[in-house]
Amino acid sequence: MELFRIPMRGSVLLWAILTQLLLCRNGVFAGNGTKACKLQDESASQRKVLERLEPLAGKNFSVTVKEEKENYRYVFQLCGDAGGVQKAGVIQQTDSQAKPTIVGSYTSTKAIGGSDWVMLIYHNGDNYDSHCNNEARKAIIMISCNKNKEGDLEVILEDRDRQSDCFYLFELDSSAVCPPVQSQLSAGSIILIIGFCLVAVYLIGGFLYQRLIVGAKGMEQFPNYAFWVEVGNLSADGCDFVCRSKNREEAPAYRGVTADALDEEPEERDDHLLPM
Rank of each mutant, 00 (worst) to 15 (best):
R52H: 02
R52K: 12
L53E: 06
P55R: 08
K59W: 01
N60H: 13
F61I: 05
F61R: 06
S62Y: 06
K69D: 08
V75K: 11
V75F: 02
F76Y: 15
A82Y: 03
A82K: 10
A82C: 02
G83Q: 04
V85E: 00
V85M: 00
K87C: 01
K87A: 10
A88K: 09
A88F: 03
G89Q: 07
G89R: 11
G89D: 03
V90R: 10
V90A: 09
I91E: 00
Q93Y: 03
A98Y: 09
K99V: 10
V103E: 02
G104Y: 07
S105Y: 07
Y106A: 04
T107I: 09
S108G: 08
T109M: 04
T109P: 00
K110T: 08
K110M: 02
A111H: 11
I112C: 05
G113T: 09
G114E: 07
S115D: 09
D116H: 08
H123I: 04
D126F: 13
N127W: 11
N127Y: 15
H131A: 15
H131N: 13
C132S: 05
N134C: 08
K138E: 01
A139C: 06
I140S: 12
M142Y: 12
I143S: 08
N146K: 13
N148W: 03
V155H: 12
V155M: 12
R160E: 07
Q163F: 04
Q163N: 11
S164G: 01
F167W: 01
L172Y: 12
S175Q: 06
S175I: 00
S175W: 01
V177P: 00
P179S: 03
P180T: 13
Q182K: 15
Q182C: 08
S183H: 05
A187H: 04
